[in-house]
Design a protein around this nucleic acid. Structure first.
Lengths: 298, 298
DNA sequence: CTGAAAGCGCTTACAG
DNA sequence: CTGAAAGCGCTTACAG
């Protein structure tokens, strides 16, 4: 009898179940810049992993605004999300993380460590410092002497971290360093690229990420300065476009799909087993070499 | 007294309210290809509009799979989403739209009309046919005689629609048409571009979207065939990358941010007023002309 | 106008 | 092992 009713139109009432204390099956994903293709690919892989394990994903883009972020995470708590993955915006972390702590929502910080209490809110990110170190060694090995680092606001920990591997390797090799600080965008890459292409200040550049590198690449194309021999270029992330431009871009790959699925899995494991992950975890990166540092003859 | 309690740690219990019949404040967004930067930008603008009007967004990526789609929309219904915006996957629409109809969830189909019952599920999309018509006229006006249309699976309504404006204008001008059918991806654009760049079959191309056009652009760069004079290229969408490549890409802009905010607003208006939108609405598009059809001298 | 009671649809613990 | 009752935290309609 009940099955007959069920067949046409019955829907399980989750809110009722939830009220009675059942698991909600809702998990949250908070992203600071969803328009950036890196985060688009990341969000897609996280969401697919959640869905595969039977959870629905509440998502929010904060555009880097901590006020918006506090509002949307508050709303997620009300809706009863069981756990949260957050790539947080800098500034006023208490407004966001305070309520999460009080509501005991298992929360993993991905990519950006904004709240220092990693014992409460474990941090997971690719090993960017190792990545820029490998990138710098690759450039030095190919003969580069004056390597620039382009993009990223100087004060930000994310920038400092990516800089650190680059600085360490240059220091070890006795070569000069220069950070062209600025916003993380194609257009900043393009502006800076125009300056570099018109000068002889540098013979190589590592960029904050592929977005900046793609802007730089366009500026060099525009100036008709070939990339790969006299000037070598490296990005970070390996977004889909990185391999689909001309010349193809050498980049530090964090394997976005795997990283997203891994982050989602760690969060769900915490939720389901109650075992909190280690305070800080770094996932491996690898240098993907393409024509932008290898030149025509590979 | 209550305020004091509220001050530290009280959270409004939405599930309880919901059980009692209150509005959930949850709305759904279903996307067939979130890894595509167009949908990334679209999802970001939709979600920001929802958040601005006080709604939380449940999002799901189906990767074009109707089975996944039926599963995730079912889950959204259980969670009590008040309304839904869907860029649907083709195939088995009943499995997705049947439950939505039975649960009376106000649902707008955006970008792809998969369920023909637009009286129940209104359809909203940019006027792509007008866009490709304008693109074709622009190319003819600049002297192109053998214009290709690249990308899109031939049987799909989305492809047919974009083709229609192109075919109509070529027909009116007495010029030949050719559709290079294929998947919507950078790599298909690149493969086809390699063929076109090595031949003299065409003197211009309109692509299914910017992703395909960007692939084609790379192939021409790779072959060292300049774009803009002897071969002109047009994309569709005006994703951020379109203006940030070399040469910059002429494209049919649907103003993604405005379109996303508009779609979100129409859905919320329906939800809040109870007035169902018109069965089919087309939003205006405009041709953004850049160097890929204008050449060096603009 | 204010305050106590009923009930939404589940799950859980308890009685038969 | 099966079935009726209690109760989760709200909102709504009703009594005072």
């Amino acid at each position: 009898v009940r099955e007959a009713i069920g067949a046409l139109g019955y829907v399980y009432n989750r809110p009722a179940a939830q009220l009675r204390g059942a698991r909600t099956g809702l998990v949250g994903l908070v992203i600071n810049d969803l328009r950036n293709p890196f985060f688009g690919e990341f969000a897609a892989s996280v969401q697919m992993e959640f869905a595969a394990r039977g959870y629905a994903t509440v998502i929010a883009n904060t555009d880097g605004d901590p006020v918006v972020q506090a509002q949307v995470t508050g709303s997620m708590i009300e809706h009863g999300v069981s756990a949260l993955l957050i790539s947080a915006a800098y500034g006023d972390e208490e407004a966001t993380f305070g309520p999460l702590a009080r509501a005991s929502v298992p929360t993993i910080q991905v990519l950006r460590k904004v709240d220092p209490r990693t014992d409460l809110f474990p941090f997971l990110a690719p090993d960017y410092a190792a990545g820029t170190a490998a990138a710098t060694r690759h450039l030095i090995g190919r003969g580069a002497q004056r390597i620039a680092f382009v993009g990223g606001l100087a004060a930000r920990p994310v920038t400092q971290e990516r800089l650190s591997g680059y600085l360490a390797e240059l220091d070890a090799a006795g070569l000069p360093a220069r950070h062209w600080a600025g916003p993380v965008s194609r257009s900043f890459g393009r502006e800076t690229g125009a300056v570099l292409a018109a000068s002889d200040l540098h013979d190589a550049a590592i960029c904050y990420n592929d977005l900046v590198a793609l802007g730089l690449l366009v500026a060099f194309n525009e100036a008709e300065r070939p990339l790969g021999d006299r000037f070598r270029l490296i990005g970070i992330d390996d977004i889909e476009a990185a391999g689909q431009v001309w010349p193809p871009l050498t980049t530090v790959a964090c394997d976005i799909d795997d990283f997203g699925a891994d982050a989602a899995a760690r969060m769900l494991d915490w939720l389901e087993t109650g075992v909190r992950p280690a305070p800080e975890t770094r996932t491996p990166v690898r240098l993907v070499t393409r024509a932008s540092t290898l030149g025509r003859n590979g």
